[in-house]
Write a protein that binds this DNA or RNA. Structure first.
Length: 703
DNA sequence: GTTACGCATGGTA
DNA sequence: GTACCATGCGTAA
């Protein structure tokens, strides 16, 4: 165990060598707690998920912008570390907790030197050498302690010791006594095991600045006004929340809090931060993490994330896991068959994936198998990001996700729905209730058939749908029914090769009125709706000038019973697919008949091209970002030869690579290359034409 | 004929 | 050059 000294000046344990594992931190580790007093230390700066109310905002020393520090102790403790620390998320340079610059630190120690006759300090390699009580020791840590309860500040070292002894007797050593300082103090901690040297000073305005220097063992006391320290305390520290009526800095910074940034959360120390590529670090906003924890009713520690590739999101149902992440965060497996891993998604559904590996080039390739049902239920596609987290206690894995940028859905959005029922009392909750009420009012006002249709489209088996709807602001139903809200994923795709993006309006368009039936008129919120006595007809209209709600165009393309049967059969086929989801939830996200109908209808000619499963080039599915799929339709949007877009650059690189290889293989192959690639559109070879098929004919996906 | 499994291959960092 | 990983592909069910 790494040697560290407890930084709680109430604690006499200056030689702590063991640290208890405390509460889980958002950095995927655990807070280390002093064995003696239970104080948090080191990486406890990440504990905001657990003690959010004690989190606070600070100003970055370098850029001055507010930065967040969630340390349970940081609200009452300003900490300085010469090395390490957390980068400011804004400027990425300043240590998050570096509230004193090195020069200030030096001044403080010089003051000590000047006022303690037997002391001598030097600045060596950025560190401070203290001679005297901490003779020959390198100063590593220096901190200003700000008391939260001045009335409890001990006025003497004796009181400090007494208070510490009292604290040690407390049962709840984890939180009640976390870094409760006796006063504003400057602690200079030596790196070796002879205890820290403390500079304590009362900052109570009712008392003169009374600063003492000594080791915590109390063998040296110097009462003096350390001017520079006082100046600093009066300057920076005195402007702290404490001197503003004990208001927290977080309150002070209220209104200045910047928008939540997506923070890449590196793994905790010791778990191989250097081993895990930063692209796998879970990037969640504090808000998302907070909501996830709220949703799971547990502490959730993000582990890693991965952007779904085409093959991950394909129907194969295999999600390739980054090797390092799999080995670090998932249970070790020795057999290729691996073991089942139970996971909860953000909706609270339980899934079991097979965590296994394949031998691969003297290495392993880790995969999660059986993810298709979950992916479909969550409507995840290539480009989306899945986030693996772990709950504490219990260690159960959480399967979270984040939609690809540009999508209207984010994990946060989905969590909004998932946690709606947990947000009782919040304004957000009220908004949801408001919308729910209006929706119910509307449904109640609708005819049975229409109500059934809409309700089915929302489908009680598709929580995502409800959640999507519930996310909507509580606008009137009439507005809802007439506006286009942008792409909404209403239904899970009924085939892996397809994706359904359909607005509510489009969904409504799938309901056609029965032919030759005159509608009645009902009023909901002063809006007239047509009511039909006969069931609606399902089908995709071929004309688009229909009224969204009822007066549907007579040109509706009705489905024959056989067509309906075919689609329903397709839906049933879904159930044949292998799914190892638990029985209690296994059917929840299966598309119902109406869903299948809607999907099939919505996936008509002009909406989504149903790309058939092909073994030739399965990557060409919806969402595929390859050259073929990303190229614009021929004719318009043609890329210029000088275009430097990603697609063009990639294409050029590929061609260059291909050319180089071909040249190596000889002239005959070069000729073949010329045949294959040879100016399909008559373009010179150095002018890449992205509108031509980049692959030989036998590889081209059917257009 | 289709699908899933398991391994191989090749691109990329 | 190597490891990782996306995905291609042969084969068995």
């Amino acid at each position: 165990m790494e040697f560290e000294v407890c930084m709680n000046i109430w604690c006499q344990d200056n030689a702590s060598r063991e640290w208890k594992q405390g509460w889980p931190l958002r950095s995927a580790g655990f807070a280390r707690l002093c064995e003696e007093c239970g104080s948090a230390y080191a990486n406890s700066i990440f504990c905001e998920t657990f003690h959010k109310h004690q989190a606070g905002w600070r100003e970055c020393n370098d850029c001055g912008k507010p930065i967040h520090c969630g340390c349970i102790v940081s609200r009452s403790l300003f900490e300085y570390r010469d090395s390490g620390g957390i980068d400011c998320v804004t400027c990425a340079q300043a240590s998050q907790l570096r509230l004193m610059r090195a020069t200030e630190n030096l001044n403080a120690v010089r003051s000590i030197k000047n006022n303690a006759n037997d002391r001598h300090t030097e600045h060596i390699d950025g560190r401070l050498m203290v001679d005297g009580a901490g003779k020959g020791k390198m100063v590593q840590l220096c901190r200003i302690v700000e008391a939260s309860e001045p009335s409890r500040w001990p006025q003497s070292e004796r009181e400090v010791i007494d208070s510490c002894n009292g604290l040690n007797k407390q049962d709840d050593t984890r939180f009640s006594n976390v870094m409760k300082p006796p006063s504003h103090s400057l602690a200079i901690t030596t790196s070796e095991n002879n205890g820290p040297t403390w500079v304590t000073g009362s900052m109570d305005k009712s008392h003169p600045l009374n600063i003492s220097i000594g080791t915590s063992s109390g063998n040296s006391v110097l009462t003096s006004a350390l001017e520079s320290l006082e100046e600093r305390l009066e300057g920076k520290a005195l402007s702290s929340p404490f001197h503003q009526g004990q208001r927290s800095l977080s309150m002070k910074m209220e209104g200045l809090i910047p928008p939540q940034e997506r923070i890449a959360r590196p793994p905790a120390d010791g778990i191989g931060k250097s081993l895990l590529l930063s692209r796998y670090w879970p990037k969640m906003t504090d808000h998302e993490l907070e909501k996830l924890s709220e949703c799971m009713k547990s502490i959730v520690v993000p582990l890693f994330e991965k952007t779904l590739s085409s093959s991950d999101a394909s129907r194969i149902g295999r999600l390739v896991l980054p090797k390092s992440c799999a080995e670090v965060y998932f249970p070790p497996i020795t057999q290729s068959e691996g073991l089942p891993l139970q996971m909860l998604d953000v909706m609270g559904n339980e899934w079991i994936f097979q965590f296994r590996f394949w031998p691969n080039n003297n290495s392993r390739m880790y995969v999660l198998e059986g993810v298709t049902p979950c992916m479909q239920a969550l409507q995840l596609n290539a480009g989306d990001t899945v986030i693996f987290s772990q709950m504490h206690p219990g260690g159960k894995y959480v399967f979270g996700f984040r939609r690809a940028s540009g999508s209207t859905d984010t994990q946060e959005a989905n969590l909004s729905g998932a946690t709606a029922n947990l947000r009782s009392g919040s304004s957000y909750h009220n908004l949801l209730l408001n919308w729910k009420r209006k929706r119910e009012a509307f449904l109640n006002g609708c005819s049975e058939h229409l109500r059934w249709g809409i309700a089915s489209l929302q489908t009680e088996n598709c929580d995502m749908v409800n959640n999507d709807l519930l996310q909507l602001p509580p606008i009137s139903v009439s507005e809802r029914m007439t506006q286009t809200t942008g792409p909404k994923r209403l239904l899970p795709p009924n085939d892996d090769a397809t994706e359904l993006r359909v607005t509510l309006e489009e969904a409504q368009n799938l309901l056609s009125p029965p032919p030759k039936v005159k509608p009645g008129i009902i009023k909901v919120e002063d809006q007239e709706f047509e009511e039909y006595e006969e069931p609606p007809v399902f089908g995709k209209r071929t004309a688009i000038n229909a009224h969204p709600l009822g007066s549907l165009n007579s040109a509706s393309k009705e489905m024959s019973p056989k067509e309906l049967d075919n689609i329903l059969t397709t839906s049933k086929d879904l159930k044949k697919r292998r799914s190892i989801r638990k029985p209690d939830t296994a059917q929840e996200h299966e598309p119902h008949g109406l869903n299948a109908l809607a999907s099939a209808a919505a996936l008509g000619d002009d909406l989504v091209e149903p790309v058939g499963a092909t073994t030739k080039h399965p990557r060409h599915r919806l969402g595929c970002s390859c050259i073929v799929c990303s190229q614009p339709p021929s004719g318009k949007g043609k890329h210029k030869p000088t275009c430097t877009c990603i697609a063009c650059v990639t294409m050029k690189r590929r061609c260059n690579t291909l050319m180089a290889r071909k040249r190596k293989r000889g002239q005959s192959d070069d000729d073949a290359l010329a045949r294959d690639e040879g100016d399909t559109n008559g373009a010179p070879r150095d002018q890449i034409d992205l509108n031509s098929h980049p692959y030989p004919e036998d590889m081209q996906v059917d257009a």
